[in-house]
């Protein structure tokens, strides 16, 4: 069983000084702006897909924290939604690479300015998908 939370990219911190080198040297310390970009993977609960086994949803989230003086602003964005455990009709697990996803999904991800809270779908596995995605999103909220 994989651990529920996996840090796939350790925190990457960049220090950006505003303006050119001279201006930066002259600028007071309070003008320093620090941008911290972190990526994290959240795995939902194992959803029961009734006839076809289990579905487990993983979301990859980027959190961008901008620190100006004492002010912190965090923005989170879901980069991708994946089902690492998905039984196909023959019972084998399968992965579908993100490159193969149609443009439509890219548009959906782009249009999603903040969060998807709930899923509408038609299939048995979608119930499990919704359940697991719901759990993954709830975990991401606490990050």
């Amino acid at each position: 069983m994989r651990r529920p939370l996996t840090i796939i990219l350790t925190m990457l911190a960049l220090t950006v000084t505003s303006g050119n080198a001279l201006a930066a040297a002259m600028a007071p310390k309070a003008a320093l702006k620090k941008i911290i970009v972190a990526k994290k993977t959240f795995t939902g609960s194992l959803g029961q897909a009734d006839r076809w086994g289990n579905v487990q949803v993983t979301i990859v989230v980027t959190k961008t924290t901008t620190v100006t003086g004492t002010k912190k602003v965090a923005k989170r964005h879901i980069d991708s939604i994946k089902v690492p455990v998905f039984p196909d009709h023959t019972g084998r697990s399968q992965y579908i690479s993100e490159n193969a996803l149609p443009l439509l999904i890219q548009e959906a991800l782009k249009a999603q300015s903040t969060h998807i809270y709930i899923i509408s779908g038609a299939t048995y596995t979608s119930d499990a998908f919704a359940q697991s995605l719901q759990a993954a999103i709830t975990r991401e909220k606490a990050w």
């Binding site: 994946k82 439509l104 999904i105 548009e107 959906a108 809270y117 899923i119």
Partner: peptide
């Protein structure tokens, strides 16, 4: 509220929000 509509063939994908 933001509702994701599941892609009909790609179970991991949301077709529209």
């Amino acid at each position: 509220w933001r509702v994701g509509i599941q892609h009909p063939t790609i179970s991991e994908a949301v077709a529209k929000v």
